[in-house]
Each structure stands twice: as C-alpha cells, then as structure tokens.
Design a protein around this nucleic acid. Structure first.
Ligand SMILES: [Mn+2]
Ligand SMILES: [Mn+2]
Ligand SMILES: [Mn+2]
Ligand SMILES: [Mn+2]
Lengths: 228, 228
DNA sequence: TTAATTTGTTAGTCATAGCTAACTTTTTTA
DNA sequence: TAAAAAAGTTAGCTATGACTAACAAATTAA
C-alpha cells in the first residue's frame, strides 16, 4: 500500500497532466500513450509535456524510459481518479442544484476539481446522496477511489438495424452537447440505427419517432450500449 | 461608468492583492495603507508587494505615487467586492449544507473565491435564498456589487458595565474561532462587561450565566454592537 | 536640525510552466 | 535497407511571482 499522503502538494498543472494521461491510458483505452499524443490532448507543445513528464517521473507518479511510452504508477492513477471524482461530482452539483445545463458544467468543473479539501468533496457527495453518474452519463468514482469505466461503445460502431440506449456523451464540446439536446436526444434515449451510409459513414437514426441523419463525427461522441 | 468587463483575466495573485488592499482600506478602516503594511498582511516580502502594485497600477486597479500610500480605483474596489462576495457565499454554503464548522470554512473559501463563473456564484446565492450574513456575521455583498460594512466595534473597546451583542468574529484564526465556540459564545450572544482590568486590559465578561475572563487580544477579534 | 529608524524601491536570483528551434532517436515507407 | 517521416529530447527564451540584499526617501526622535 503506497499511501504516501503526498496528495496535496501538487500544482494545478501537475494534476492536469496526471488526469490527462489517465484519460488517455484508461478511458480511451489506448494501449500506449506517447509524449506527443499527450501534448496534443493537453494543447501544449511536446517540449512542455516532456518537461513535465520528467518532473512527474522524479515524483514517482509516472513511469517511462527515454524515448519510450508513458505509464502511471499506482499513486499517479490514484491522484487522477480523485480528480475525476471531483470533476464529476461538481458537474452533478451544478446541474442538479444550480440550474446549469450539461453543456455549461465542464469548464467550471475544470476549475473546481483543483480545490483541495477532502471534506468538501466527501460532504458534497453525501449532500447529493452519492450519485452514481455525472450529467453526461459517466460513472463517478467513490470516496475509496474505486473507479470503473462505464461499459459503452460509440454509436458510430453500430450497424444497420442495431438498437441501442444512449448511456453517455463526450462532455468536451459545448456545441456538440447543445446539438444533442436540440435534436431531442438525452441519456437513456433508445436509438435505432436505420442505415449507415457507405459514402460518408453518416447514419440515419430513429428515436422517439424522430428520424435524423447524423455525421460520423457526431456518432463518435455518442456512447451507447446495445439493446438488440 | 468604468465597466470594462476585464474581470476575468486576473491571476489568483492579482486578485489576492486587490482583496487584501481593500480589506486594509475599507474593512479595517485604515486611513492610509502603505506598501510594507500590505506586505505584512499578505505575508510576503515588501519587494513582492512593490512589484505587484506596479502591475496593478499599470492595469489601473491601484493608484499611488512613488513613495506614497496606496489606494484602489473604482474598478479595483469592484473586483475586491466581488471576491468578498464569493468568499462569504462559499463560507455560508459550507456551513449550511456541507456540515463545516465556522473555523473550517475560511481556508477552503480562500480557494473557492478564485473560481471564475458569474453564473456559479449567482446561482449559489439563489440556491441559499440570498443570505445576508456569512457564518462569522459579516455582510455578504449582493449581485450588484453593493457592499456595506457591518456596524461594529471591538469588544475590547467597551467599558465596565457595557452590554453588547456579538455581531461578528474575525474569521482568520482557527484556534480563535474554536475557542469562541468552546466557551459558549456565538453570533447574537448578549455579553455584559463586568470589569476591564487596568493591569493587562483583560476583561471579565458575562453571557448566558457564564462568567469568563478573556484577554485583550481575544476581545480585539470579537465584534459587537452596544446594547446598553 | 541632524541622526536614527522606518518605509519604500531596485537589482538580481530562483522556481514554475509555457514557448520555438534545433537536434536525436525511432519507426515507417519506398 | 536506406531514406523519409514521425516522435521524442534538449537548449535557450519568456512571463509570473516569489525571495534577499543593497540602497534611497521619508518620517520620527534626539
Ligand atoms: Mn467534464
Ligand atoms: Mn462529465
Ligand atoms: Mn473567511
Ligand atoms: Mn467569513
């Protein structure tokens, strides 16, 4: 048990890098994550990530060999999970109690996730009666740091005739989330794939007696579980 | 009307300096505030404050002549008031909804006050139904930036026989606040000054049939309004 | 009114965290 | 398998915001 309790001396940047690396490693289930990939994800230069990775290696949150791929230590993963817990709890709070819509919460949660107070986040969790999912459908890690990834596939991976339930959406883009709501989709919507068009991979879908055509790019950001 | 809307490009440090200067100027009603005084208040070196004051003068939040005293512009005051509003609303939220005690809230609020989202703070205000006072008794500025200082004097300024009501406490020191609660004092307590001792300015006070002797230092941090 | 003390300023240093440009190593492709 | 491309690294620069040490101005005391 590597319980060093060195959780509160991380800078906002260090936290952001650890969370980003975790999301690439675990959530996007990439087999290997490289320096340039991390740089692109964080929208900084490869030189910046290279520099930060050095520091995080010295602090034993990250493992990698020179010119090799990146990985997180147990301690590094644990910090990342705590950040994701905070992020998702705050998003939930903003939607459920402060009248935020699901496209408004991410940017504010990016700030709030860096507030350092164990009591704050655990009490917020209790106050909301331990929610399981955030406003975008993603699972919220619990106070013990137990983390699991929602079983999901992208809408774009389905074939003609498949029926699925919308279980989560990518929360990164405001315009995407607004678009999803506008056409009438929401978490739990049942979606039937009418046709995947060969030419441009656009997809005709049906839900609530509505028929829409969505692009491949759109469908890549919609996460579903198959029903039929 | 100097409404430049340049409110969201300030660093945490810049915000902290403006708030500190405001608190020295307005809340502690100091006639003049100097560079070293600000440095001591913020627990940084005079060189650091001198440097930051230069930057804040360039941005037109602060006014001062070389070797002269410091003052805030309207814009500078406005930023400071918004920070104080955020600080006090968060303190109130933590106490009322998240089971924090009044000695636990200040440090977390120091972090939360720097979160940038107009909607967040105005919705938090609405959620709590527009509270007037924070957990330490201080007035919460409203959404229009209207700010007023609670009419108050220190307990240490009273004389033998005076009777007063506890209206606020200095929220800076955890050990002080714990001490206040422990002896049974709270906001609205009625306190009678039995005797101010010449020798060390210690004060015998009575409240709720309790008689206690408190030091001058203690009484400096207790804010009251006179009843008799 | 001079001398001592306090207050304020400047110069130079450090750490953090970005950047570009140049370079090296690894991987891919022809 | 050699050349090209991609990926990763390094050096050197910038800005922010701390610091100390040295100095100048203003205030206070003698
Ligand atoms: Mn989010
Ligand atoms: Mn989310
Ligand atoms: Mn406070
Ligand atoms: Mn307070």
């Amino acid at each position: 048990m590597t319980n060093k309790l060195n959780l509160n001396n991380l800078t906002k940047s260090e936290e952001d890098y650890l969370k980003a690396l975790f999301q690439l490693l675990v959530e996007d289930n990439a087999t290997k994550v490289g320096n340039n990939q991390l740089a692109e994800y964080l929208k900084v230069s490869p030189a910046s990530t290279n520099n930060m990775i050095k520091k995080l290696k010295a602090k034993e949150y990250v493992i990698s060999e020179k010119y090799g791929k990146l990985d997180l230590t147990e301690e590094g993963r644990s910090i990342a999970v705590r950040l994701i817990r905070k992020h998702r709890l705050w998003e939930t709070f903003l939607c459920k109690y402060l009248n935020f819509t699901w496209d408004e919460v991410h940017d504010v949660a990016e700030q709030l996730e860096h507030i350092k107070s164990r009591k704050l986040i655990d009490e917020l969790d209790r106050f909301m009666d331990y929610p399981k999912n955030d406003p975008h459908g993603e699972l919220i890690p619990n106070a013990n740091g137990e983390y699991s990834v929602l079983p999901k596939i992208t809408l774009s991976s389905l074939l003609d005739g498949d029926v699925c339930e919308l279980v989560a959406v990518n929360d990164g883009s405001v315009s995407f989330l607004k678009y999803v709501s506008e056409i009438g989709l929401a978490l739990s919507s049942e979606i039937r794939v009418l046709e995947v068009r060969e030419f441009d991979k656009s997809i005709r879908i049906q839900f609530n007696d509505v028929i829409e055509t969505v692009t491949r790019k759109f469908a890549d950001n919609v996460f579903v579980k198959k029903v039929v």
